[in-house]
Design a protein around this nucleic acid. Sequence first.
DNA 1: TCAATTATGGACTGATCAGTCAAAAACGGA
DNA 2: TCCGTTTTTGACTGATCAGTCCATAATTGA
Lengths: 193, 193
Amino acid sequence: MARPREFDRDAALKAATEVFWSKGFAATSTEDLVQAMGIGRQSFYNAFGDKRRLYLEALESYYRNATSCHIGRLTAPASPLAGLRDLLVGLIPDDDALRCKGCLGAGSVGEFGVTDPELTETREKVIAGFRAKVVERLKEGQRLGEIDPAIDIEQAASFIEITMSGLQLAAKGGAGAQELHAIAAFAVERFRA
Amino acid sequence: MARPREFDRDAALKAATEVFWSKGFAATSTEDLVQAMGIGRQSFYNAFGDKRRLYLEALESYYRNATSCHIGRLTAPASPLAGLRDLLVGLIPDDDALRCKGCLGAGSVGEFGVTDPELTETREKVIAGFRAKVVERLKEGQRLGEIDPAIDIEQAASFIEITMSGLQLAAKGGAGAQELHAIAAFAVERFRA
DNA sequence: TCAATTATGGACTGATCAGTCAAAAACGGA
DNA sequence: TCCGTTTTTGACTGATCAGTCCATAATTGA
């Protein structure tokens, strides 16, 4: 019983995500956003609240999608070590333009740190779920004798997370795909029994 | 034969560096800067050019100082492996407020990526010099039998760089000092013969 | 003492910022 | 058809942005 929305909310969110991803939060203006989203100013505020709300929403959907992809690569191969390798290697796109955008999640940590509790909470919730899967795969690796039994699982999981961040920052800094793929494989190889 | 500057240029630069370090480039206003630097607006533009010039200068002096500290820790111990460990552990301050500021260099990569050639050049020059020292220490480690001779030196050096970035991003994200110290030690331990 | 030069303080610029307002338009239910 | 509700459009808000202008002050060499 009211006028229906003319634009596709999901598509607009996706367009906004791209802008935030490329430019960061602070350097993105609402004008940039409405332009990229192809909607009017008031529609923007009606549908998404404000700039910060939109950023939160974009980040959340980005995390959801990225995490699901990560877990897919982590768990697809029969070999746990291969799964971990695919996880890390898969972070690095071959396409230059895509790779040097880095990771929106890493970008938000770099830009906000721990200054925004809502953002921090979202991040930690996502990471906790993902980390559990990594731990699972690491344990499996030790059970199968692929991974050095002397390695502490929790530390190894933290190490994987750190390596992911490092790879994504290096990608943003312009490192080449081949080089980064090699480093990813190198890191996982350090676990081999 | 002209009026001398009333403020200490180095101190002002240091104050500006702190602001950029805490807030990033885009989120820092010139008003923030002149306030923190304790100087007038015109003095600011006289002495430092403009906001971007000041950022470049701040980043350069930050890099110079940080790199010298890194190399100090890397080369101090007799054991190469201990040097690498001290390098990584030393990235992580115990003080919470300091630690969660992360690294200005990492921040600049996150914020600008490869979009600013001048900034990228500065970064790459610094990293090249530092990396050479890491390579040196890795070779020494292999010579002394501390480091697994099967490990490729160049990949190991890249891996150290990646781990440094990862640790600093995690610190910015609020990770604890103990946890990060443990991960740093864990990473280096992966090299042991 | 004065001329040349640079630093300083404060007002000022047009541009852009995030966000709001009001009026018109498009729909579903009655 | 007409009413209630929501979307859309475009103008508009005060605040803040980076950077400039100008008059005054402080210094040194002549």
